[in-house]
Design a protein around this nucleic acid. Structure first.
Length: 275
DNA sequence: AATGAGCGA
C-alpha cells in the first residue's frame, strides 16, 4: 500500500524498462487548448547522447475538437482559477484512486472454520464438504456421482408423480428413507423430464422468443438456445422445459411443423442430457 | 443436420 501511494501503476508500467529514469524528470505540463485551439505542452526529456536534460515545448493547434465538440463557453471555463482539491494537486492523478479498504476473502475449509471436521478423512481441500445423500457420509463425491446410485432408492420426486400421502413425511416405516415432499420453490427447476427439443430455429431466435412461443402452453422452467461458444451465435436448436408434462405434449403437438421466422420448427421430446 | 450449462445439500 505504501509503495502504491508513491508510485502509481501507470508509471510503474512505463518505467519497467531498465535504465529509464524519465520518472525522475518534471512531469508533462499541458496548457490549453485556448479559444483559438492552441495547445502547449512542456516536457522534459533525458538526452542519452549529451547526458543532459532537455526541455521540449510543443505548440499544436487543435482544430476539430475545439470547433465541433467543445463550446466556446467550455473553453472559457478552462481558464478559471482552480479551486478545492484541484487547486493544489494534479487532478488527473487523482482520477484513479487507491482504495485502502481491507477486503476479507473467505476460503472453503479455511483453517479453524467450522467446516473443518477432524472426523472427516482429509482428501482434497473442499472435498470433505461433499455429502452424498446415498452413502450418507461426507466424502469425495456428490449424490449425482455416487457409485452406488443404482442400488439407491428413487430419490427425486417428480412433479407429475408426487409422493403418495402414505409415503409422505408422516407414517414412516422403520429404517426406510422417505424423501421429504419437495417444496413448491424446488419443484420449479427440479425436473428435467418435461423438456422438449426445438430445432430449425432461425439464427436470431433467442431464449426470450422461445419463452414467448412456448409459454402460452403452460409455465416453463427453462428456455435455452444452444450457442456456439466461440462466436456466441445460435446453433439453431434449443430446449424448453415445462413444469407439467401435459403442457409439453400440447406444445409438441401444436408447434412441431409450425412455421416460425419463415422456418418450419421441429419440436420433439428431448433426450435426457448426457452426464 | 444437430441433444444444453453450471451449480451444490
Amino acid at each position: 500500500m505504501a509503495a502504491a501511494t508513491k508510485m502509481r501503476w501507470g508509471e510503474l508500467d512505463e518505467n519497467d524498462d531498465d535504465g529509464d529514469l524519465s520518472f525522475l524528470l518534471p512531469p508533462l505540463v499541458v496548457t490549453g487548448p485556448d479559444e483559438n485551439g492552441i495547445k502547449k505542452t512542456v516536457e522534459y526529456r533525458f538526452d542519452e547522447e549529451t547526458g543532459k536534460t532537455v526541455k521540449v515545448t510543443t505548440t499544436t493547434r487543435v482544430r476539430e475538437v475545439a470547433r465541433t465538440r467543445v463550446t466556446k463557453r467550455a473553453i472559457e471555463r478552462r481558464g478559471w482559477a482552480k479551486f478545492g482539491d484541484a487547486a493544489h494537486i494534479d487532478a488527473g492523478a487523482r482520477l484513479t484512486m487507491v482504495s485502502t479498504e481491507e477486503i476479507v476473502l473467505e476460503r472453503p475449509s479455511a483453517p479453524g472454520s467450522k467446516t473443518e471436521d477432524p472426523l472427516v478423512p482429509k482428501l482434497d481441500r473442499g472435498a470433505a464438504l461433499m455429502l452424498c445423500r446415498i452413502c450418507g457420509v461426507k466424502g469425495n463425491h456428490w449424490t449425482s456421482k455416487c457409485p452406488n446410485k443404482d442400488l439407491a432408492p428413487q430419490l427425486d420426486a417428480l412433479v407429475d408423480r408426487p409422493p403418495t400421502p402414505d409415503t409422505g413425511n408422516g407414517g414412516s416405516r422403520q429404517g426406510k428413507y422417505v424423501p421429504p415432499k419437495p417444496k413448491e420453490s424446488d419443484m420449479r427447476r427440479r425436473n428435467d423430464e418435461n423438456s422438449v427439443r426445438v430445432s430449425n430455429l432461425s439464427e436470431d431466435t433467442h431464449e426470450d422468443d422461445l419463452r414467448e412461443l412456448f409459454g402460452s402452453f403452460g409455465p416453463l422452467t427453462r428456455a435455452y438456445v444452444s450457442l456456439d461458444h466461440r462466436t456466441g451465435e445460435s446453433r439453431g436448436f434449443g430446449f424448453v422445459s415445462f413444469v407439467y408434462r401435459e403442457h409439453a405434449e400440447k406444445a409438441i403437438a401444436k408447434l412441431n411443423g409450425y412455421g416460425y421466422d419463415n422456418l418450419i420448427l421441429h419440436v420433439e421430446w428431448a433426450a435426457p442430457r448426457p452426464n
